[in-house]
């Protein structure tokens, strides 16, 4: 465990908590893509099935359980408790265009052709693109609430920190996981445009709005 990995995990946790708190405090999930949140719940579910088969550390198990629980809580708030505030008309990304190719790819390119390993690979590939419905929604409405941009910032920062963690682990531990690294690079690249807007607008106190 190095500092980049730890701050990456904490950044991921911060993103998840920010989103939950935003929805809970405002009693509204306006501007949030339920589809992205469903995909993240699917990502955590398929990735953390090893909770049943192997124990790594108390930290590892607790974080996995927290991520899974929070992702289901978020989906519950969006699709059940605050369903009336869900902006379904703007959440129109076709998720089958992500899930089907990602599913196919995880069968073709994986470390080991076993059910758990294929599901783990599926989750890694799916996570890298799961934010697309949310970014699509923002590009459709042309704006995002500031708190939503903080959520996106921490979510993007998490995978960027993991990239540094992987460079670190490669040099000091000889650890290299091509699947995770390639997917992590793709995932981080998807946030670059957003990072630019976040730094040039949101951090200067302006609302994130896109030109019409």
């Amino acid at each position: 465990m190095n500092i980049f990995r730890l701050t990456g995990d904490l950044s991921h946790l911060a993103a998840i908590i920010i989103l939950l708190l935003k929805i809970w405090k405002t009693r509204s999930c306006a501007g949030i893509s339920g589809k992205s949140q469903l995909l993240f719940a699917l990502v955590f579910t398929t990735r953390y099935l090893d909770l049943f088969t192997s124990f790594i550390s108390l930290y590892n198990t607790s974080m996995k359980l927290i991520y899974v629980a929070c992702s289901y809580a978020t989906v519950y708030l969006i699709y059940m408790k605050f369903k009336a505030t869900y902006d379904g008309n703007h959440d129109t990304f076709r998720v089958e265009f992500l899930v089907v190719p990602v599913g196919g790819l995880s069968f073709l390119v994986n470390h080991d052709f076993s059910p758990l390993e294929i599901l783990w690979t599926f989750s890694i590939y799916l996570e890298s693109v799961a934010i697309l419905p949310q970014l699509f929604m923002i590009s459709k409405t042309g704006e995002a609430e500031t708190i939503t941009t903080h959520y996106l910032f921490f979510l993007g920062l998490y995978r960027a920190l993991y990239l540094i963690n992987w460079i670190w682990r490669y040099y000091f531990e000889g650890f290299f996981d091509l699947i995770a690294v390639v997917a992590g690079v793709v995932q981080t690249i998807l946030y670059c445009d957003f990072f630019y807007l976040y730094v040039t607008k949101v951090l200067k106190g302006k609302k994130l709005s896109l030109p019409a």
């Binding site: 990995r5 995990d9 991921h12 090893d50 192997s54 790594i56 550390s57 590892n60 974080m63 996995k64 991520y67 470390h111 080991d112 076993s114 390993e117 783990w120 993991y162 650890f175 996981d177 995770a180």
Partner: peptide, 10 residues
């Protein structure tokens, strides 16, 4: 390669 090795990450 130990397939478990990447599972220490989240």
């Amino acid at each position: 390669e130990d397939p478990k090795i990447h599972k220490d990450e989240l």
